[in-house]
Write a protein that binds this DNA or RNA. Structure first.
Lengths: 140, 140
DNA sequence: ATTATATGTAACTGTTGTTGTTACATTATT
DNA sequence: AATAATGTAACAACAACAGTTACATATAAT
């Protein structure tokens, strides 16, 4: 979803786009978009102005934004579930397995991010444009 | 959590362990464990018998089970969120971005799995055993 | 055979996280 | 000053998951 927002922003390169417009594009509520934009601002991927006639725009060119950056900005927690209950400390496995698995999962996640780094926002956009009959200009 | 179950099973190599015992070890309910075991059975990672004095055991040695297999057995859906609402079809980005992102995410997930493949269940166990003062024998 | 034991499964509850919605204070442009 | 936009809070709706209880079924032990 974050990628979608940024892709629309990339379309309007340089122009400031309001959260209302972005929300209409991805068919959701402006507040949802703003919450997303807050995370993207923190990651310095977008710049957002406040007053009338303002809105958001990319803070760099789409070629300089990759999906790993977006992933890190938005997905704050790990993709692996952490059990709600504490493991049984009387069990030798239960006591220490978490620390071990955390290492393994950190490695796996960094492998995932390294793969995402290979795709830039610009790459996504050209792929979208190339993928068939979606050539109509934006209507809004 | 699934890894935890399998690690306990690996400890008792060959022995059949009941879901009640496994549940006590990871501090949860036997039914939760059984639901997990169903998935692991489907993936041919464990064998489960039904009657009295029965239970579950690994279907291969811990060295021949890697975390990617466990991940695939348990995490049936992708780690990437799919938006609930359909994108606005009037927007050229919204219309085609899903197909594009699916490819990218599939690639990222396979990178994740390739990394998980590098760690076997046996590797997890030796790491757990090596990680400090967790040397007490299992109490159950 | 009968009994004891363990799984498979259904139905329900509770919790958590996410999305969506409304409302409003704040801030910048015009 | 008026307008238009964000930031943010509070809450409802919803889905996903963990947990619980209950019970039918199947196997092993006696």
């Amino acid at each position: 979803m974050a990628v979608h927002v940024l892709a629309v922003l990339a379309y309007k390169e340089g122009d400031r786009v309001t959260s209302a417009l972005l929300a209409a594009s991805i068919n959701t509520n402006p507040v949802i978009v703003r919450r997303l934009l807050l995370a993207l601002q923190r990651a310095k991927l977008v710049e957002t102005g406040k007053g009338a006639g303002s809105g958001s725009r990319l803070s760099r060119s789409p070629g300089r934004i990759n999906l790993a950056q977006i992933y890190r900005a938005v997905e704050d927690c790990e993709p692996f579930a952490t059990p709600s209950r504490k493991p049984n400390t009387a069990c030798p496995v239960g006591h220490c397995i978490r620390r071990t698995l955390d290492k393994v999962f950190a490695s796996a996640e960094s492998a995932l991010e390294r793969d995402l780094e290979k795709t830039t926002l610009a790459g996504v956009i050209t792929a979208v444009q190339a993928s068939g009959n979606c050539t109509r200009k934006k209507g809004h």
